[in-house]
Design a protein around this nucleic acid. Structure first.
Lengths: 193, 193
DNA sequence: CATTCTTCTTGATTTGAATCAAGAAATTAA
DNA sequence: TTAATTTCTTGATTCAAATCAAGAAGAATG
């Protein structure tokens, strides 16, 4: 069953009682998605919160001039959605897409609100998880305009070696906010020393 | 008393029952800070969550090369802290500073966790508030590397006219991620048409 | 009112990354 | 294994914003 991963990984990070965890499980359903499929797109509403059992998703933003900027990548045991849209039933400007064939669990709004307001350890887990994202975004924003492309790449290489191997370079470039050409030149330069 | 503003503004945004709101009030204390004072600095721990009754705070990040990047400005009725540090008792890399003499309410960790896990409307309020910040940060990150300085300034002028009047331009520049010189030139150009 | 400090403006110069344009390499599909 | 598509590399050129440098304007202070 789909519960296996949540039991083994997610559960270990949240101090659920058996009872609390038993309440949580049936609120989720399972979904398989193919590479390149979207969970939601700009202009639509994020109807669910997703938990990744297996695979890789990216959240991205399309700018006025049509450029894609990757906001983040999430892999196994990560959570994805866009809660502003999800909670208010308003269209989002962000996109969520599978970069690989992926196995997901998802939860709808009603169940999610129930869970998050009635299971205290989950409340705190979600607040922390959001705040982690928040903090990461703040730092990246602070860095985005000051770091050189090379510094950005070196940071990524150091902090996300697994993603570097797993994803095509043009997605990394769209994450770092540089062109694929520049990324290619940086890598060449680094190899040479 | 300090309760006045919370009653009039914050309360109107959250659907508290009288009982719930009565529980919340005594968890806060009052604090006056002078212009330029820090509530916390990089390397220290964010001990409190702050509510601004009057004044203006900025959260900012100092990069390796010593550049300051303003993450956000908050004014009357805004909430400020750095919850990763606050909840985990770990040093933050961010700074929170008063840009004007300010009147604040603050709440400590124990009280905050109690409130947020025991007052459901507050739970949802905080999750939403954080998610709004989150969403804003994502969009800014998506824009930061694509928009020209002029586009960034025009957006700020449109979206934050009050802050534009209230703050010195070099703080705006440090928010937009451009130099004060560039900002000055943009403004000159715009005035001329 | 004079002085000091803060904030903003202007000019000259440099530079690093984007853009434009092909083509090479690697993957995937037929 | 060949063809087709995707991904990555390399070169030439352009340009917008940073940097460096100085001084003007404005605000705060004694």
């Amino acid at each position: 069953m789909t519960e296996s991963l949540m039991l083994s990984e997610f559960r270990s990070r949240v101090e659920f009682s058996d009872k609390e965890f038993a309440k949580l499980i049936p609120l989720f359903e399972h979904l398989s998605v193919k590479k390149n499929e979207h969970l939601f797109q700009a202009g639509s509403i994020a109807k669910y919160v997703y938990f990744i059992e297996k695979g890789c998703l990216r959240q991205y933003y399309i700018n006025k001039n049509g450029d894609e900027r990757n906001i983040y990548f999430k892999t196994e045991n990560g959570w994805c959605s866009e809660l502003v849209s999800f909670l208010n039933n308003t269209p989002t400007e962000l996109n969520l897409q599978a970069l690989e064939d992926s196995e997901l669990l998802y939860i709808n709004q009603k169940n999610w609100i129930y869970a998050v307001t009635h299971i205290p350890p989950l409340t705190m887990y979600f607040i922390r998880a959001q705040q982690d994202t928040n903090y990461m975004l703040k730092k990246r924003l602070g860095e985005a305009t000051v770091e050189t492309p090379e510094e950005k790449y070196l940071r990524f290489e150091k902090e996300e070696p697994a993603l570097l191997k797993r994803l095509p370079l043009y997605h990394i470039a769209a994450y770092l906010g540089i062109t694929p050409e520049t990324l290619s030149r940086i890598r060449k330069k680094i190899v040479k020393g």
